[in-house]
Design a protein around this nucleic acid. Structure first.
Lengths: 328, 328
DNA sequence: TTGAAAGCGCTAACAC
DNA sequence: GTGTTAGCGCTTTCAA
């Protein structure tokens, strides 16, 4: 059976109140002798306070939730690690919820995490417009990361890069390298999508007309890169591809290779995210790097500062940069 | 302010006990009218029971912990996903703890999760011999995954593949393809390590003498592949590399390429894990596939069945297979 | 310097 | 059918 504060109190010949005080460093008024006696008993019994009882009292669980599309997408582990590392500093745990971008599952996650088992939420949604329950949202602080919903009301923070400008820069790089027929393969999304807007904007700025037959929308996965490139090949000619992420780029390069097209000779390609393996693609992938780990840390810090010290949430943009390798 | 069961009881003109009963489907003795009245009030107030209070009573948090080396290693997200998907089926959440294989951090994790905030633990240790606190371990059911400690005592389950035989098979494949000087690059470990033993065994069985200058031990990362191969190149000649995982293989191929060595012409290489990107390496990587996602699911199921239904833990081996691609 | 007691929100006997 | 009550293990006034 688990040992409780009461057992410790008895063995140390003090009240539970006293034990509680020494354990929580409300030591100021406890005599050194008592304190040491208590501590000894605690150690001897390998006593760990029951977190639920503690939480019930303090209304704090020391757990935050991380709601994300899919931890299997290599962009997210970095983010997760940043979050967890920071959380540990505050002595918080983090609970993961994969949603596969399914609004129903997002709802479930919010409900699951909303049961006061969680002190706050970090939310990575790939939807521009999210469908979570506003009521739940309002009861817990939330920080959005990456491509995030812009939320008018509520206690919501945000940390991300300027996706639109990053995507524009990627597109410009291709155009600047001589591409005239620049394709775009990314995840499905409404027209408000920042990356898409960046691509469009850069093209227009360069006086290149947007061609619908150069745009393929799917998911943020390798499959989409495969299918999209195959589709482009059937549509006609192109000399560059702006990819929604590195996974898509990997798929694209695979299909290009299969069809005897050389990169960057025949087609230039640029990715997004700079996942660890992009440098080991062949040729190494030129890509837009997000400070993914840092985004996670920053988001966690913002959330935790809010929870622990009441610091208000806010919106923060981090820097991106283009990693020049050999596909452009 | 949060709405409690008491608020609901008042608004519905019943006792808290009644509310509790209808909410927990101890409906049998509640009149339909009352039930509906209660439910209406619950909905109107968007009431969610406080999980901590519930947990304090029921001694169950509906949370399990997942202790792993590093979620950033692409082997683990798959595993994590398997765990989480299964956990959701049981209405459990999962808390992640990265340890970087640091025994101190493992200890911290166990302590953190041991505070009865967690009903069970899934533990992926790359240590053969683990340093967690046995006392803690004994208080909560634990299932080991992947390369796991064999624990004599306690309430411990295990799910994995037969690493030794898998590693032997990989080595044999190279030997069978004509390799005579087969190198081994993997993570540091004591000689008990199953993968290492498999490599050794296969070599001996083929009558090939083990050559110390063909063995490099580091971490399970790309860096190790890079450094190990560089080191091998300085040592002398070799015609095959058995890699501890796909990350190492990716690093190895990068260095081989840089040095003008062709794969599989000059050197054959085989990986381990079949992470999603191994097929997009150039050339696509031949590797040993573990049913990673399935291992996660199975482990979670075993753990949860133990927690929820008292089913005893046990040891389970899943099948591996070699994925033939173009590096052998 | 220490302890008694109330109460966090919920559940489960047991009583009515 | 429904309500009363006694805790679950902990923290925190307040009194001694």
């Amino acid at each position: 059976m688990k040992v409780t504060i009461k057992d410790i109190a008895e063995q140390a010949n003090v009240s539970t109140a006293t034990v509680s005080k020494v354990l929580n460093k409300n030591d100021l008024s406890i005599s050194k002798a008592t304190r040491e006696r208590v501590l000894k008993v605690v150690k001897r019994n390998n006593y760990i306070p029951n977190a639920m009882a503690k939480g019930l009292k303090s209304r704090r669980s020391n757990m935050i939730g991380f709601i994300l599309p899919d931890i299997t997408n290599p962009f997210f582990p970095e983010l997760a690690r940043g979050i967890e590392d920071k959380a540990k500093e505050y002595n918080f745990g983090v609970v993961f919820c994969n949603t596969d971008d399914d609004p129903d599952r997002e709802g479930e996650c919010f409900r699951f995490l909303g049961s006061q088992m969680i002190d706050g939420i970090i939310f990575a949604s790939s939807q521009e417009e999210s469908s979570y329950d506003n009521a739940l949202l309002r009861s817990v602080p939330v920080v959005m990361v990456d491509r995030g919903v812009t939320i008018a009301d509520g206690n919501v923070g945000k940390v991300s890069i300027d996706s639109r400008s990053a995507s524009a820069a990627a597109t410009q790089l291709l155009v600047g390298s001589g591409c005239r027929r620049v394709a775009y393969i990314s995840a499905k999304c409404n027209t408000a999508n920042q990356r898409y807007l960046g691509y469009l904007g850069a093209l227009e700025k360069s006086g290149i007309k947007v061609d619908e037959s150069l745009i393929y929308l799917g998911e943020y996965d390798v499959e989409t890169g495969l299918r999209g490139t195959q589709w482009l090949l059937e549509q006609g000619s192109f000399d560059g591809i702006v990819c929604g992420n590195d996974l898509i780029a990997a798929g694209a390069m695979t299909v290009l290779g299969r069809n005897g097209l050389s990169v960057p000779g025949d087609v230039k390609v640029i990715g997004f995210d700079n996942i660890y393996l992009s440098q080991h693609l062949n040729p190494p992938l030129t890509t837009v790097e997000q400070p993914t780990y840092e985004i996670g840390r920053t988001a966690a810090e913002m959330l935790l500062e809010n929870i622990v010290n009441g610091v208000p949430l806010y919106s923060r943009k981090l820097d991106y940069r283009i990693i020049m390798r050999q596909t452009v």
